[in-house]
């Protein structure tokens, strides 16, 4: 139970950063923290005690294994996260070129 709550605390730290920070770099970092915590919570739900990884090996008896389905889903989610991070970094760099600042309030003021 305590691990679920700690994972939720990590999620709330990410939300805190995304709401209060005005620096674009900090916002990108907090979005990646959100991603980490969600992925970890998914795998925490799937864990079954006293069982091994879901990979068969030669000449070994079949033991109880953990659930392979959440692992497959999280594997795709991690890759997509990297794509979004690259996209956000490119956008931030482009905004820096135009406005010479990472502060989102400044960027809003200079619009139009």
């Amino acid at each position: 139970m305590i691990v679920y709550i700690l994972c939720f605390v990590l999620f709330l730290v990410g939300i805190y950063g995304a709401i209060t920070k005005r620096d674009l770099i900090k916002i990108i970092l907090s979005i990646s923290i959100l991603g980490y915590s969600v992925n970890l919570l998914f795998i925490l739900f799937a864990y079954r005690s006293e069982s091994i990884y879901p990979i068969l090996s030669k000449g070994k008896e079949i033991l109880p294994m953990v659930d392979p389905l959440p692992q497959a889903l999280v594997l795709t989610s991690i890759v997509i996260e990297l794509g979004t991070t690259a996209m956000l970094v490119a956008l931030a760099v482009r905004l820096f070129e135009k406005y010479k600042t990472f502060d989102i309030t400044q960027i809003r003021r200079l619009k139009g």
């Binding site: 990108i28 799937a46 990884y53 991690i78 996260e81 990297l82 991070t85």
Partner: peptide, 30 residues
Amino acid sequence: LQAPDLAIVQFLFEIFALIILVKAFLGKEY
């Protein structure tokens, strides 16, 4: 949590994300 597949992928992608972030943001004086 017995997910070696995910551990490898997360490790490598973390390194890659760090390189992207450092290359993009380091040395910008703001």
